[in-house]
Design a protein around this nucleic acid. Structure first.
Lengths: 118, 118
DNA sequence: GTCAATAATCGTATATTTGCGATATAGAAT
DNA sequence: ATTCTATATCGCAAATATACGATTATTGAC
């Protein structure tokens, strides 16, 4: 799971962490899974598969990615697996993204962005 | 820029929009660029290149992706290009992600997630 | 005009992601 | 034990992403 040429390690920790959460949410299926898990009480794997226009094996892969990113937890319940959002990590992710989107934007009128668009 | 086998279109609009913003932020270089632009008054392209451990052509590609996602704007200023955050769209992105991370999580104790971890 | 500087694009190599069918695994039911 | 169900993993193909050097296009300075 390494980035091409391993450039990832040259970035700051917080930038890497934020990008990893973003990557976990960078596919509509994974966004859909998160939304589904948030509102469902029952969250067996097969319920998730039913919700998505993808094959079971593909959904399983997306679940694995969300699990690796720490956003969800999978728990064995008899022959099935029950998935749910990892509330602890979800809270952390919320804080990280909240921080990113709350960056105070400097007014740049006096320096640039006053010419024609590319 | 199509998803494999074009499955993207089978998802809901809001899920696609959220995933596209997430994808734009799914690389540490692009997170770093956003953070840099937020705090800088001068935001010429070469300033951004200096900040990153990547070649000019690679940075240019990352800028293009952020531009395509609508998160930044590039404006010609003489021989240079000045980049800045698209405040309007940034606000929208903030709302979309805010909405996602503010999903009320149902308590799932009574239905699942009480067994051993996978 | 020529030259230098800036940034985008092209071409290419490599890595990663996405997707599916087939198979494997594990537990439940019989 | 056999069978069924649920899910993960494997193997493969196609699509995308990442990265760089080389080239191109544009502008400004001379």
């Amino acid at each position: 799971m390494q980035m091409a040429y391993n450039k990832k390690l040259k970035f700051k920790k917080d930038e890497i962490v934020a990008s990893e959460i973003a990557k976990a949410l960078s596919h509509p299926a994974r966004v859909a899974i998160i939304k589904f898990l948030a509102r469902q009480k029952s969250c067996f794997c097969n319920n998730i598969v039913e919700q998505l226009p993808l094959a079971q094996s593909t959904v399983s892969q997306h679940l694995k990615e969300l699990k690796n990113a720490g956003l969800i937890i999978g728990l064995i319940d008899g022959p099935r697996v029950c998935y749910c959002i990892d509330k602890e990590n979800w809270k952390k992710a919320k804080l990280i993204f909240g921080g990113l989107f709350s960056l105070k934007l400097n007014s740049q009128k006096d320096k640039c962005c006053y010419a024609k668009t590319t």
